[in-house]
Design a binder for these strands. Structure first.
Lengths: 247, 247
DNA sequence: AAACTTAGTGTACCTATTACACTAATTGCA
DNA sequence: TGCAATTAGTGTAATAGGTACACTAAGTTT
């Protein structure tokens, strides 16, 4: 390796998780973009963090943290999500790595992060993950690290810390692509649902109106769903047929 | 950060590129999957490295190396490719991050790598990039780091070091997906080409035969290509009309 | 029983995809 | 010079898929 020499660094620490004895990789983090559907709108899960001591320094962000040395990236994403929001058992899909050198500046103001990195001037490369859940099934809860956890309509995402707005935007794009090619399932729907609910889901992800008859024709022809012997109850209009996923 | 404590590490070095004075991120690398087309088959670019002193320890791998602290991931991919194969000016697209903890074992035998990492036991997370080029236009050359650089048919990729076979397989899958959705251009073709050449390209990427008439109908209708006032010369059969890309 | 609300249904047109076989133009060689 | 070899180039019919469009049905509330 002709190009490289070694330079002594006077103070160096290894970061360990004191409960579990895990060494942290100070250069690699994961960030999770969790999409939630409430049968009407598509939302994204955000956390609120106070950066530093000033009470004004409230910052919104995606749930994310550094990766441990002895876990896979996929694992890190699940663990971090659980730690920050108490959500578990969700399938998280990797969609992109973010790592332009400006990330260093974005992280500069975060004392807690600076303090536990070996090279504070170095950037953190982050691997973006996304998932879908039903908002009425799983209930995120803030941990000690995140002061607050909340849902926000994807059309109304506030200014986020770091480069998290970019990460959200990329995730939405990937989500639409995956949806177009039938790559995502129906984690976003209840077990029994009406075709109108299914159509609303499609419309909120694709962000456009679909024709009711054509939509029904398609999902029935492709056997995406099967009808149940059951109807909607307690609605103030004609009750709809309930369906479930095929297989 | 309640969970973390700091543990002193007795010997720590920072790795610097002595010519350019860049600090290396010891945890993050990039690997490039370069697809090349010779008007007949789709190939992938590999390098040959001797790992350690034993002459038998010849290892095939993708061109890849660690990322510098002050460059973007995209940049690192271009730089590393240039350093190892002398290829430049190629559009590289990120497609996936690889980081399961087993990567540590895969790297264990590589002395040169071990020696310049801060935590030799730690895994390297790698970001995969891919690109397409025409094999007759750009000619890769081995640098001092790579003893040899060579093309190999994608159906005949040998056993590679690290988890590089997995990376190649994933890249091929992404390539096919991108191609299906018209997301890749025609970096793989000469400026002037015949429709048969174009069809051969499609066939080698999609890995199946296409109908000649239907293929022509389609590319002409969609105005992907425009005919030139020029015909093929020096072939021992009916010369074909030459085409170029639209716009 | 009338008003309100959402469920549920069919047809006609247009576009895209597939399957399929022969003639045309050039070169090299007998 | 004409024949063999080779690849270029062309059209049609059938099927599948996508789009546009408007009314009746079944409940609930007042």
């Amino acid at each position: 390796m002709l190009n490289y020499i070694f330079v002594f660094q006077p103070t160096q620490y290894q970061i360990k998780n004191f409960r579990m004895n895990h060494t942290v990789n100070p250069h690699v983090s994961v960030d999770c973009v969790i999409f939630g559907f409430d049968n009407e709108r598509l939302n994204v899960l955000l956390i609120e963090r106070t950066a530093g001591d000033t009470p004004a320094a409230v910052q919104y962000a995606l749930p994310g943290d550094l990766v441990w040395e002895d876990e896979s990236l996929d694992n890190a994403a699940s663990r971090v999500l659980k730690e920050l929001t108490n959500l578990e058992g969700i399938y998280l899909k990797q969609f992109k790595a973010f790592g332009n050198p400006n990330r260093v500046n974005d992280f500069k103001d975060l004392d807690w992060l600076q303090s536990y990195r070996q090279q504070p001037q170095a950037r953190v490369i982050t691997i973006g993950y996304y998932a879908f859940i039903r908002m009425d099934e799983l209930h995120p809860e803030a941990s000690s690290f995140a002061e607050k956890v909340f849902w926000r309509d994807i059309h109304e995402v506030p200014l986020l810390g770091f480069d998290h707005n970019e990460i959200v935007d990329e995730a939405i794009e990937v989500l639409r692509n995956d949806f177009d090619s039938n790559k995502i399932g129906f984690e976003l729907l209840p077990d029994k649902f009406t075709l109108s609910q299914l159509q609303t889901l499609y419309e909120s992800i694709l962000d456009r109106k679909l024709d009711k008859r054509n939509f029904r024709k398609k999902v029935l022809k492709e056997s995406i769903v099967v009808p149940l012997d059951e109807k909607q109850k307690g609605v103030l209009h004609k009750p709809a047929q309930l369906f479930e996923l095929n297989q």
